[in-house]
């Protein structure tokens, strides 16, 4: 674990470049092109969008290499791809395919219920999901260059992303008021390395960019998570499960840039057609939640 490592700086550097942008889930080259045209700062390649994974069931895995290659050819913006939690071989394959970022994602079926990928071993940067500060710091200790909230993917219900963002903000604020003894205790409670806990207490923020994901379906949702301190937004099913993906994608990009301007948000929210139908996260039984993975 060396945060002064040059490769690590380069990894976090790309995460910095993605700030203020929207990262859109795509399952093929056509969707990737449409995402790029609507102003996405990056695309995320995956086999099925989260709402389909939720509906269809079965094991969800990394995308096929030929799909990732087609997507890489179709766009000039960075291409991310998801691997299963702990599946370091999928991650090695994605690195060999030269994707720009790997999402070790709870949306796919975990390959290892005990260990996450050791992300220090890779040249490609990783993003990982979290529900609270402890999870975020453990992932950063494993080498993640970007953190995102888990939210509850595939629901179109933003409440879980909001809960996770607020939880992380609250926990960071608490750390900044703690004495050294208390920081020791907090590190122990969160099972996170004390060195990172101290850095967060000093900075008053995470040492890597913190993006929001999970349930964003409207421009207003995107602006909400930005207002709560997210530095960028991932949108999964919210775009391609809506009645007019092109318009909605474009509007969500506008909303992330103009999140502080309610009039601009009203303008970009007009005439978008139906949002994805979605499912309230509170109605999902605990054992069907993706975020607990």
């Amino acid at each position: 674990m060396d945060f002064t490592d040059k490769t690590y700086k380069i990894k976090v550097g790309l995460a910095e470049m993605l700030k203020g942008g929207v990262i859109m889930d795509v399952i093929n080259a056509d969707q990737a092109k449409l995402a790029e045209q609507s102003g996405a700062a990056a695309v995320m390649a995956l086999e099925r969008v989260p709402s389909d994974i939720r509906a269809d069931g079965g094991v969800a895995r990394m995308s096929a290499p030929e799909i990732i290659e087609e997507i890489k050819k179709a766009v000039t913006i960075p291409v991310m791809a998801k691997c299963r939690i702990g599946h370091f071989v999928e991650a090695e394959i994605l690195q060999a395919l030269e994707v720009d970022f790997i999402d070790e994602s709870e949306v796919l079926t975990p390959a290892d219920y005990k260990y996450h990928v050791d992300k220090w071993k890779f040249k490609v940067p990783f993003v990982c999901g979290c529900r609270n500060l402890g999870e975020a710091l453990r992932r950063i200790a494993e080498g993640a260059a970007m953190i995102r909230t888990k939210g509850e993917a595939g629901t179109g219900d933003v409440s879980e992303a909001v809960r996770h963002l607020r939880e992380i903000n609250r926990a960071i604020k608490t750390l900044t008021t703690m004495s050294d003894e208390e920081l020791n205790g907090a590190a122990k409670e969160m099972s996170a390395p004390l060195s990172i806990v101290k850095v967060v207490a000093k900075l008053g923020k995470l040492p890597v960019p913190n993006f929001a994901a999970g349930g964003v379906a409207t421009p207003a949702d995107a602006a909400l998570v930005m207002k709560l301190g997210a530095e960028s937004v991932f949108v999964g099913s919210g775009i391609f499960k809506a009645s007019n993906p092109e318009k909605r994608g474009r509007a969500i990009v506008t909303a992330v840039t103009q999140f502080s301007d309610p009039k601009a948000l009203a303008d970009c929210s007009r005439g978008l057609g139906e949002a994805m139908k979605g499912q309230p996260a509170a109605e999902i039984p605990d054992d069907k939640l993706l975020q607990i993975r």
Binding site: G21, G39, A41, V75
Partner: peptide, 15 residues
Amino acid sequence: PGGESTTMNNLIDRF
């Protein structure tokens, strides 16, 4: 600044 030139180019026209 740095970022994605495709995205910036798009947003320069949009705004």
